[in-house]
Structures are given as structure tokens and as C-alpha cells.
């Protein structure tokens, strides 16, 4: 019997599989399909202070090995989520929930996290300083180590819950940003958010996505995410949630070997709504083949 449990900054997950923010809503649609309690956790849709309508259509484009999206953080706002979604989450998932929190100012990040302080199911705050599809003063907080550290500090001061900073790959040195977050008190990091990309329609000669650019995700980005998790593991001592193109239990194990303590699964859910459930079911056999009794042993094993 393989032990699948992992620990994220003191929060025990029964397995390392976590549906990634933005691909799982607030759990409602998937709860119609399977019992979400098989999951280690889930990261809810990026939630901002005010409700956001998101970007104009089209928001989606396809590519070989993946997709692009520019949804633009459409969400009902933190107060509506606490009022309407949290009670429903209590019914469909009894495990620890990761609350993905967005913001357009340092104060907004802190205020949103403060509002979640008394929401019991939320065990980890995942602070999104990396959405490529919104333009807050033209700059992501996640692109500059100093800004990333400032957000981390402000959020840490506003909450007693573990704080994981969600990082963008659209930087020269992601390890530097991760280190800045660690030094500012982050309990962990989650990487990667989507890579900035675009597609152009040959007929109209215009970008397919109305926002022009979108975030690239899917199996094609897996090696990039893996490399970045590797680099960050070398640079920090806080736990890493590995995210980016994970499509199978084998990918999840590989991500852990690179340094991830747990794994988020994004685009794969959109192609196969049962992707995470299937991964959880297949992980024990993958571990057995690898001769591993406790999956947590895989974390960073490729570095040793």
C-alpha cells in the first residue's frame, strides 16, 4: 500500500493531485461528475476584490499540444464567493481548499486574504501575482522580485494561513522571484502560471484571441514547467507546487522528482474532466513501479 499523502507547509493532503486554478471553477461542474473527495485539494478560480466580467470573446485558441486562454480573471468577487460558493464547497469537498487570490494592488491582495481568514475550509492561500491576461498598470507583480516580495509581506501580515505565491514563467529568472518571495516570508510557491503566447488566423489575418495574447498551457509546456520547478527547488527551501502541462500520473511523479511537493493539473481537466481522478487512481501503480512506498520521497529526488 503506497502512502500518497504529502505535506504543504503544515497542511496534510491525502495525495499530491490538485486541480489548478481557472480550470476547476469553484468545483460545481466537476462535482456533478465525481466525488471530489478523491482529490488532495483543489485550487479555486482566481478571485479578486470586485466581480470581474473578464475579456471579450474569443478567449480560447488551440495549438499543437495545448491551448491558449485569455479569460481575464472572470469571477464573482471575493464577497460573493464567500457567500455563495464557500457553503457549496462545504457540501462537495471536505478536504483542504486552496484559495487562489488575485488583486490589482498590494492592499487588494491583503484585503482579499484577510476576508478569507475565517473561512475554515481554506487551508492555503495561493496568491496569483502572475496572470498574463489582465493589465494592471501594464506590469505583473510577479515580474519583479521587489514587487513580489512586497505583495508577499503584505499578505503574510494579513493572514495566519500558509501563503503560496503563484509565479509567472514570463521572466528571465523565476528562481530569483521565488527566492524573493521566500525571503519575504512566503510559506511556499506554486509554478508555473501560463506562458504568454498568441495565434493569428490566416483568413482574417488578425489574432484569434480578442485580447491578442493569451496564456499557453497543456502538455507542450510540461518540460518548461519541469525545468523551472527544478531551478526553483535549487534556490529555495519552501515547498513547491508544480504546475504546467501535467497530463498523467507519470507526469505528476516526474514533476515531484524535479522538486514539487504537490502537483497542480490545469488544461488536462478541460480535455478530460476526469483527468485528476484518473491520476489519483493511477499514482499508486506508478509509485510501485518506481519502488516508492511513500510518494513524498519523490520530491526533489532527481537532485540527489
Amino acid at each position: 500500500m503506497v502512502n500518497l499523502s504529502v505535506n504543504l507547509a503544515g497542511v496534510e493532503l491525502k495525495n499530491p493531485i490538485i486541480p489548478a486554478s481557472g480550470t476547476f471553477g469553484y468545483g460545481r461542474e466537476y462535482a456533478e461528475l465525481y466525488d471530489l473527495n478523491v482529490l488532495g485539494s483543489f485550487s479555486w478560480k482566481g478571485t479578486t476584490g470586485e466581480a470581474r466580467l473578464g475579456n471579450p470573446q474569443p478567449r480560447i485558441a488551440e495549438m499543437t499540444g495545448g491551448m491558449l486562454n485569455a479569460v481575464g480573471l472572470q469571477n464573482p468577487g471575493i464577497d460573493a464567493v464567500i457567500e455563495k460558493e464557500v457553503p457549496n464547497i462545504a457540501k462537495i469537498f471536505q478536504g483542504p481548499v486552496i484559495a487562489n487570490v488575485g488583486g490589482f494592488s498590494i492592499d487588494e491582495y491583503a484585503e482579499n486574504c484577510r476576508k478569507l481568514e475565517d473561512v475554515e475550509q481554506v487551508k492555503i492561500l495561493e496568491v496569483n501575482i502572475s496572470c498574463p491576461n489582465v493589465h494592471a498598470g501594464g506590469k505583473n507583480f510577479g515580474c519583479d522580485p521587489k514587487s513580489a516580495a512586497e505583495v508577499t509581506k503584505a499578505v503574510k501580515a494579513a493572514t495566519s494561513k500558509p501563503v503560496f505565491m503563484k509565479l509567472t514563467p514570463n521572466v528571465t529568472d523565476i528562481a530569483e522571484i521565488a527566492k524573493a518571495c521566500e525571503d519575504a516570508g512566503a510559506d511556499g510557491v506554486c509554478l508555473i502560471n501560463t506562458l504568454l503566447g498568441m495565434r493569428i488566423d490566416l483568413k482574417s489575418r488578425k489574432p484569434i484571441i480578442a485580447n491578442r495574447t493569451g496564456g499557453v498551457s497543456g502538455p507542450a509546456v510540461f518540460p518548461i514547467a519541469l525545468r523551472m520547478v527544478w531551478d526553483v527547488y535549487e534556490a529555495v527551501n519552501i515547498p513547491i507546487i508544480g504546475c504546467g502541462g501535467v497530463s498523467s500520473a507519470e507526469d505528476a511523479a516526474e514533476m515531484m522528482l524535479a522538486g514539487a511537493a504537490a502537483v497542480e493539473v490545469g488544461a488536462a481537466n478541460l480535455k478530460d474532466p476526469f483527468a485528476c481522478k484518473t491520476m489519483v487512481e493511477k499514482l499508486p501503480a506508478v509509485c510501485e513501479r518506481m519502488g516508492v512506498e511513500k510518494i513524498a520521497e519523490l520530491t526533489g529526488a532527481a537532485h540527489r
Binding site: 481557472g22 480550470t23 476547476f24 471553477g25 460545481r28 461542474e29 466537476y30 478560480k45 466580467l53 473578464g54 470573446q57 474569443p58 478567449r59 480560447i60 485558441a61 491551448m67 486562454n69 479569460v71 472572470q74 484569434i208 481537466n269 478541460l270 474532466p273
Partner: peptide, 27 residues
């Protein structure tokens, strides 16, 4: 019609404005 990500309401890829708020074309 819409360009869809998932087709079952999870990704918000196909939402359009209506008089009744934003709606997902797929769900």
C-alpha cells in the same frame, strides 16, 4: 456558437454578456 475550452462550464472560455449577467454558452 462559441470557441470553447471545456464545453461543460468550468473554464469561462465562452462566456457572453446577457441582460441577465454573463452566461457560459456551453453550460
Amino acid at each position: 456558437e462559441a470557441r470553447m475550452g471545456c464545453g461543460f462550464g468550468a473554464c469561462m472560455g465562452c462566456t457572453v454578456p446577457t441582460k441577465d449577467g454573463y452566461k457560459r454558452v456551453c453550460k
